[in-house]
Structure formats: C-alpha cells, structure tokens
C-alpha cells in the first residue's frame, strides 16, 4: 500500500475557507529519525495543514502525503500514523479504557495494547473513570495514548504540550526524542519556539499560511546575528571609521547608542581606538531565537497595548 519510508511530504498545499486563505502554497518534507517542529503564531494555518495531511480537510490545491501516499490510501492508517489534534473529541460518558478499546478494535490491535498505552501516558489510575471528568492535561494524555495505539511509524501532534504540567512536558520531550531515535517520524506543532526548542531538530516556521523558514534548528541558530551596542564619544567619527573598514550595518538606536551588526566587540573597539574615538560603554547582544521567530512571523493577530485613556485611543483592534 505504502512505501514505509516514514516520509511526510507537503507540496504546494493550499486551503481556502471561503474568503480566508488558511494555508497558501505550503511545501516542506519531514524525514524519519528526527523531531520536526511546526511553528507559527495563532491562525497561521498549522492545524489546517495537519488536518489536510490526515485526510480530515480537503485541500483546495496541492498534496500532502505520508509514506508517499495520501491518507486515504494508507490502507490501515491507524498503524501508520498516530495523531493528536486540537479539540479532539471524547465521549464524556465513556471511560478512558473503553475509549481506547473502541479504537484498538478499529485499528485491529489487541485490547492489551489499550492497557499498555494507558500506562505509558501515566493514566492507569484513572483508566476506569469517565473522560467527561478529566482535566485538560489528562485528556491530552489520553489523546496521546490513542495516537500510540497502533504503534505507528509517524506521529503528528498538534500542540500536544497544551495543558500538560512541567513533569508531563519533560516526559513528552524525552519520549518524542527517543521515538524519533528509533527511526520514526515526529511532527509537532506549537506557537512557541521556546516550548519545542529543546525537543526538535528541524523546524518549519509558517506565518499567514506561508513558509517563512524551513530547515535544521542549528541553521536557524547560526543565521541569527550578533549586534554590538556601543556608546562612543563621537558617533560620526566611529561610523565613518567602521564604514571605511567595510562594516555597513550600522544603526543609530533611540537611546543614543550605535548598533553594529556582523562584527564582534573587539573589532569595534580596535576601530574606535584607531579613529581616536573613546568608548564609554560596549556590549554584545545576541538576538535570541524567540525574537528571530517574532521577526519571521510578525504576528498577523498581534494585540495592541491597552491605551491609557480610551478617548485618545487611535486605531485599536486587529493588525
């Protein structure tokens, strides 16, 4: 039925919900053996993309395949791909164990598998309680247990850390990493880079339905620039000297300092000495990943700071 490669391939994927372009011409691949983070701010189109990959939403254009096949051609999908999706449903009156047994028989695995995964996610003691009484984190664990029922080669998780306690998050992190080390494929979405930074090897960053960055996390780290913030006695003299030394990225900051990119502080200090400019303060600034993420995704639904006086409020609302 499928090639068993564990490869996820998304190609020119597009989804239009009426006037809303949820996903636009998105392309990326996810290879087995690594954890890939799928990142983007609220409304970026992460959930829509994952649901198209899982055959739940019909793409307007483009394809999404697992093992080289669209979802509905996988044959026994529960054994190939396991998924945790946001707002996934449970029948409130069904116990966790019965919920898992229902889907164990659908996938065609023995009931013992239900008990095994329920232990794996740490819900054994609540197995016979009705899911209606579960907390958000417990439901999230049950969703993960459901995804693991068929011992799938590919895991697709939409904000799985949502509602998990710190211990749960730490457990999930190691679990996903070891899952990937076994040669399986893990795709995990989040709207926080920091949340998955320690878990993922690859990232796909999207914003407004389009890819902004796609590659190893290491490459993203390297692309981040260092800046040197310097307080010179003579701004113009230092800027001229730096330009003469071939440094072009110089910026005047509102606080009176110069921001110099692409050099280290030593080089700036040496140049200043040669130009006879005194330095009152110098500091190297590392642009952190989170800020880079912000720059890449510059929120489509960024909120505004509350106006101190409502009558002076300018254009409020959504960006």
């Amino acid at each position: 039925m499928h090639d068993g490669s564990g490869l996820i391939a998304v190609q020119n994927l597009t989804k239009q919900f009426g006037p809303v372009a949820a996903v636009q011409n998105l392309s990326f691949t996810v290879s087995p053996g690594s954890v890939t983070g799928f990142l983007g701010p609220n409304g970026a189109g992460k959930t829509t993309t994952l649901r198209m990959l899982l055959g739940l939403v019909k793409p307007t254009a483009g394809t999404a395949t697992i093992n080289g096949r669209p979802f509905h051609q996988l044959g026994q999908p529960g054994r190939v791909v396991g998924a945790v999706l946001e707002a996934q449903g449970f029948h409130p009156a069904r116990s966790a164990r019965n919920h898992l047994r229902v889907y164990a028989s659908a996938i065609g695995v023995p009931d013992a598998q239900a008990d095994q995964v329920i232990g794996l996610v740490g819900l054994s003691s609540a197995a016979d309680r009705k899911v209606g009484g579960f907390s958000l984190g417990m439901k999230q664990r049950l969703a993960l247990a459901t995804a693991l029922l068929g011992d799938p080669q590919v895991l697709v998780l939409d904000e799985p850390a949502n509602g998990l306690d710190p211990e749960g998050i730490a457990w999930l992190r190691t679990f996903l990493q070891s899952y990937a080390r076994m040669g399986r494929t893990v795709l995990i979405s989040s709207h926080l880079l920091a949340e998955v930074e320690q878990t993922v090897d690859q990232v796909v960053i999207i914003s407004r339905g389009q890819t902004m960055f796609y590659g190893p996390l290491e490459q993203l780290r390297q692309s981040q620039q260092k800046r040197v913030l310097v307080q010179p006695s003579d701004h113009n003299a230092l800027a001229t000297a730096l330009r003469a030394a071939g440094v072009q990225a110089i910026e005047q900051l509102p606080d009176g300092r110069l921001a110099v990119s692409g050099v280290d502080s030593r080089q700036v200090a040496d140049t200043a000495l040669q130009a006879g400019v005194s330095i009152y303060g110098i500091q190297e600034e590392q642009v952190d990943l989170e800020r880079l993420f912000f720059q890449l995704t510059s929120g489509q639904y960024a909120g505004h700071a509350p106006a101190p006086n409502p009558y002076q409020q300018q254009q409020g609302g959504w960006a």
Binding site: L56, H72, G78, Y103, A106
Partner: peptide
Amino acid sequence: GELSRRTITTTFLTAPSR
C-alpha cells in the same frame, strides 16, 4: 452525535476510509 462531540475525528483517523 459523533460530529457534535468531535469523536468523528478519531473515527476517521482509524478507518481505511470514510
């Protein structure tokens, strides 16, 4: 009932086809 409780998601994820 499955549509309004959203259990249909898992039902479709675990079946060869709708």
